[in-house]
Amino acid sequence: MSFNFNFNLNETKKAIKLTNEDVIDLLVIGGGPAGLNAALYAKRKGLTTGIIAKRIGGQLLNTSSVDNYLGISQVSGEELSEKYLSHLKELDVGILEEVEVENIHKSDRLFEVLLKDGTVFTSKTLLIATGSSPRKLQVRGEEEYSNRGVAYCAICDAPLFKGKNVIIAGGGNSAVEAAIDVAKFASHVTLVHRSELRADQILIDHMNHQANITIHLQTQILEIIGDDKMTGVKVLDKQTLLERVIDADGIFIEIGNLPSNHLIKNLVSLNERGEVIVDEKNMTSLPGLFAAGDVTQMPYKQIVIAVADGAKAALAANEYMNQNF
């Protein structure tokens, strides 16, 4: 047997810690591609900046392989995240990781960001780049069997389903990628989706080559069933309108994401999907408060788009600073 090593120097050499001594020009909340690139651009423009994040990398860390980033033909999500972080460290961008924000408010012209531990940061402009979190199926049994069969991180948890039968719920890129990843361990993978596949053709072709993956389209998951542990799902075949049970030891839910808007949902305008509405320069309905990446109404949630969105937001924040401070 052979083992690889994903050694990560950043884990041993921490970035400069962001402190709250001074008023910061652009404070970034969120450590995914949008937030990281915004801090990079802000720093290079000469603004004081810093990042507050639960975890640097964001959803990138759950991405086993990035294959459509111009100039880099293949890289793991984590490696890409490491490259981003190294770049920020070279520029001495302050980072505060593993912290959660309690609330945000604007008093007079400044933003105050209160952390759960009681620390307060003050900034002239603020960027929300909090991304999104996995959408749930919202069917009976999903909560009950959470972590007793129901899982949301395919690359993390696939090895736990070695030799087992696993269902993947969803039909987009992340679902098809999960099917391919899990099929390396599981004895059989069944992809279940309520409509048609909308993943990239290149991924679908790859999945079709895998002998141990079965695909059920136009099939809706009604319930996750089991005893102590999950034993299967009850589904509705939307063409025959017949219900049946598909036996499985586990299910990975890959049906898209919900915007993580909770910090500012009472401060700014949102669209019907809960995404933060921003103008073409990434400003929200509250002056000085910017948003970028998956948390916004920006269509097509892609890494490359989030990165670009972060850059745009930082440049716009710089412009706003010049006009208002």
């Binding site: 990398g57 984590e78 991180c153 690359i155 993390c156 948890d157 696939a158």
Partner: peptide, 10 residues
């Protein structure tokens, strides 16, 4: 942990 889990070492 699993060896493929990026969140686990933390």
């Amino acid at each position: 942990v699993t060896l493929s889990c990026p969140h686990c070492p933390g």
